[in-house]
């Protein structure tokens, strides 16, 4: 089981969190103004990266707040967690193992 560091509460067990998928996907301000392709991209297409990716998490059974994380999907190692609205921290090596 993973330990995940909530930016508000500190390290807690993975079971307290829920996963929210790829981070920094911006909701179109006026969906009716964009093309079907752009809406498909927003709704369905995902980077699904093998390596380091930014993703959304929620400390569901804790403070309940959303935050972002940078995780390596080849090791599940969390490189950083950061608050919503903060910029994605520069990640180190592509993979740590």
């Amino acid at each position: 089981m993973l330990l995940i560091k909530c930016p508000y509460c500190g390290e807690r067990s993975e079971l307290e969190f829920s996963y929210g998928g790829q981070a920094h996907i911006v909701r179109p301000l006026i969906p009716s103004d964009i093309t079907d392709e752009a809406l498909t991209e927003y709704l369905y297409h995902r980077d699904n990266i093998k390596g380091v990716q930014a993703e959304r998490w929620r400390h569901l059974h804790g403070c309940g707040r959303f935050f972002n994380a940078v995780r390596d999907t080849t090791t599940d190692h969390f490189q950083a967690t950061y608050k919503i609205g903060e910029a994605q921290p520069a990640s180190g090596a592509k993979s740590d193992g």
Binding site: M1, L2, E14, L15, S18, Y19, G21, N48, K50, E55, R71, T73, T74, T75, D76
Partner: peptide, 13 residues
Amino acid sequence: DAYTSYTQRGGLH
């Protein structure tokens, strides 16, 4: 598992 991964294992829980 609840999150995407390429690790070919999975949480023991």
